[in-house]
Design a binder for these strands. Structure first.
Lengths: 187, 187
DNA sequence: GTCTATACGAAGATAGAC
DNA sequence: GTCTATCTTCGTATAGAC
């Protein structure tokens, strides 16, 4: 049976955009209501535990996108360098070229209540594992590969912060260009 | 005449700690009042424009620390690699080994009203310039040095995000170890 | 499921006594 | 300068009609 995009799914997508744009505290119920097109009471109908449930749903939604756009390409077929390039393209799409933020960062700030940040951190760990596997395919030993993967995550998060601060996507784009060298160095 | 630590200066230090720990939105007046030991009315006596003034004062306070602990050592005497190592030590102290946050990141999220984020971004730019100068001293041309400096800032911001997310200062410490290689590579 | 209305608290900010 | 008291606004959340 085909997966129909329910009204809830569309609402979740809109809600996730708000959280990524304004953070947990900044994404007020008014904003979430306006962005999703659902009244406050409708929001509580779909998310009985209120904002916490919305954040959790947003994190799950965003995590699925990371899986599809970045982790799957990394785990796919082809040469390590080619897979990293596909992942870089996926990252660019996922982060809208550097304009969108990362929930790992946003949900670490303010009152975000446990579950949502947990999902985000789990996805980040999965991404790091995927990077590590590619680095090992490229010839690095396990420990070295793990450090390369960590550096990749660090540079992704940092480039997003710097790009946002500078109001330019250039730092993010330059980081994407560095990625193959970080993961598959000397292959 | 000796610079006496006025009550205001101590209050600013406490306020800055709160902003760095909870972000702009999260550092409520109640919290700022409690941390500084000043009642709300006293806060408004020292900071007539309220929270906005407090954030600006906090940013100035923190900026002075960056100047002293990181930028000055970078601009000092000695071999480039040695200066970067001093800066790394300064960064470790400034960020409490990776446990403290960066206002450039925090003030980019939420309702922080212009002036304070501006100060933070200006300090980040000054830091990048200092890194660039050292990289040029180490033999890099201007463009290459600028990119190395940008990467350093990116890795600093990213390592802080990752360390916070993982609840470990290890990623930050490993980044510090990479710093000399980033700035003074192949010297 | 969605609406209107509303409860409740916290936040930022101000007034005026001392 | 600091205090108590107060004001307003906003945010989260709920009740109950439709």
């Amino acid at each position: 049976m085909p997966v129909v995009k329910t009204s809830r799914e569309e609402a979740v997508a809109a809600i996730a955009r708000e959280f990524r744009a304004f953070g947990y505290d900044g994404a007020s119920l008014s904003r979430l209501s306006g962005a999703s097109g659902l009244g406050k009471s409708s929001l509580y109908h779909y998310f009985p535990n209120g904002k916490e449930d919305m954040a959790k749903a947003a994190a799950d939604h965003v995590g699925a996108a990371v899986l599809e756009l970045v982790i799957t390409p990394l785990a796919g077929e082809g040469a390590p360098a080619a897979r990293v390039k596909k992942a870089a393209a996926g990252l660019s799409k996922f982060y809208e070229g550097g304009k969108a933020n990362c929930l790992v960062n946003l949900f670490s700030i303010g009152d975000a209540p446990e579950a949502a940040p947990g999902v985000a951190k789990t996805m980040a760990a999965a991404l790091q594992n995927a990077f590590q596997a590619v680095a090992q395919n490229a010839g690095a030993n396990a420990g070295d590969a793990r450090q390369r993967a960590e550096q990749a995550i660090v540079e992704i998060e940092g480039a997003l912060v710097v790009s946002r601060a500078q109001g330019s996507t250039r730092p993010f784009q330059r980081m994407l260009a560095r990625l193959p060298g970080i993961i598959a160095a000397g292959e």
